[in-house]
Amino acid sequence: MNVFRILGDVSHLLAMIILLLKIWRSKSCAGISGKSQILFALVFTTRYLDLLTNFISIYNTVMKIIFLACSYTTVYMIYGKYRNTFDSENDSFRLEFLLVPVTGLSFLENYNFTPLEILWTFSIYLESVAILPQLFMISKTGEAETITTHYLFFLGLYRTLYLANWIWRYHTESFYDQIAVVSGVVQTIFYCDFFYLYVTKVLKGKKLSLP
């Protein structure tokens, strides 16, 4: 466990808490893509099946349970409790465009052709593209609430810190998880455009709005 990994996990947790707080305090899911949140719930569910088969550490187990709980609570807020505030009109990304290639790729390129391992691979590939419905929604409406941009910032920061974690682990432990690294790089690239807007607009006190 290194500092990049810990900070990455904290950023990830913070992102999910920020999103839940936004929904809870404003009693509204306006501007949030329910489709991205369903994909994240699917990511955690398929990745953390090893909770039942493999013990790694208390930290690992507790964090997995918290991530699952946050993720399912968010989906419940959007499609249950506050569904009348959910902007389904603008959440129009076609999920099959992501799910079909991701499913196909996880069968083709994995470490072991076993159900658990294919599901783990599926979750890694899916996570790398799961934010696209949210970014699509922002580009469609042309704006995002500032708190939503903080959520996206911490989610992007988490992935960036994981890249540093992998570089660290490669040098100190000779650990190299090719599937996670390649997907992680792809995922981080999707945030670059957003990071630019976040720094040039949101951090200067302006609302994120696209021309």
């Binding site: 990994r5 996990d9 990830h12 990745r47 090893d50 493999n54 790694i56 550490s57 690992n60 964090m63 997995k64 991530f67 470490y111 072991n112 391992e117 783990w120 994981y162 974690n165 000779s174 650990f175 190299y176 998880d177 090719q178 996670a180």
Partner: peptide, 10 residues
């Protein structure tokens, strides 16, 4: 090296 049966990251 990668022990694929033990994914220790979140």
């Amino acid at each position: 090296s990668m022990d694929s049966t033990k994914h220790d990251e979140l």
